[in-house]
Design a protein around this nucleic acid. Structure first.
Lengths: 122, 122
DNA sequence: ATGATTATTCAATAACTATTGAACAATAGC
DNA sequence: GCTATTGTTCAATAGTTATTGAATAATCAT
């Protein structure tokens, strides 16, 4: 993943309304939700919701498709995983042993941490 | 990690200059770099660099310490790992099987993907 | 002390992002 | 065809973030 792409994705996740929208889409994956449902669930005015959804779709983190008069939005989970991988790669590149030692100290449960980045091949 | 904290961190990573700075600090972990070195390496005016470094430090993604007339900045790798964990959790919450299947299909090498999120306990 | 080096703060401006109500377009049901 | 429903686009405004040069502070070397 290129840095520019990554920055665009982080820009989406950097706004609280957008992060909420995305989390909701992940929760309702793989079917997703239509705009009206999102607006109701998060209590965001529809016009502002459209604005944010446009940004999210533009980043690639969600897809949209028309369904009659509704528009259905679905989270792009592979792209989210690629983003996770990007951050992990940043961590490991050049510093595998560091990554390993920090993982051991961090208070985060092991099953939520990236695995085996310290084993990767150069 | 709270959503608000995550949003702050994503805000840091959402700007290209800041993402470059952070990547550089990760690359030079654990010793970090002093401001002047960063400015030279990335060709960012020092006054603008200060501005961005302040944001990064405020988010917690880097620490700063004076060294004579230099200021040394170091990446906070554990916080980056927590952020990775947060994204992973978002992905998996409610959808472990989905996460698993997408991981299998994704073109990303397994050692760069979050592991065993599908095994986590509720 | 003086001058050179390093980095931050300040102030001004530029650029961008968010929010909202009103207008508009498209579809569905009668 | 009309009306209600669903969503998007537009325009105006508000708010926030980025960038820069000039001024300032702190340290080091002589």
């Amino acid at each position: 993943m290129e840095a520019k792409t990554a920055a665009t994705i982080f820009e989406v996740l950097a706004s609280e309304p957008r992060l909420s929208i995305f989390r909701l889409l992940v929760k309702y994956a793989p079917d997703g939700l239509v705009a009206g449902e999102i607006a109701r669930m998060l209590d965001i005015p529809k016009t502002n919701l459209s604005f944010h959804l446009k940004t999210i779709v533009h980043s690639g983190l969600a897809s949209m498709e028309r369904e009659g008069r509704n528009t259905r939005y679905k989270a792009n989970i592979p792209l989210m995983l690629e983003t996770v991988a990007y951050l992990t790669t940043e961590c490991c590149s050049g510093n595998p042993e560091l990554c390993l030692s920090f993982r051991a100290e961090s208070g985060v449960a092991p099953e939520f941490l990236p695995s085996r980045c310290e084993d990767r091949k150069p």
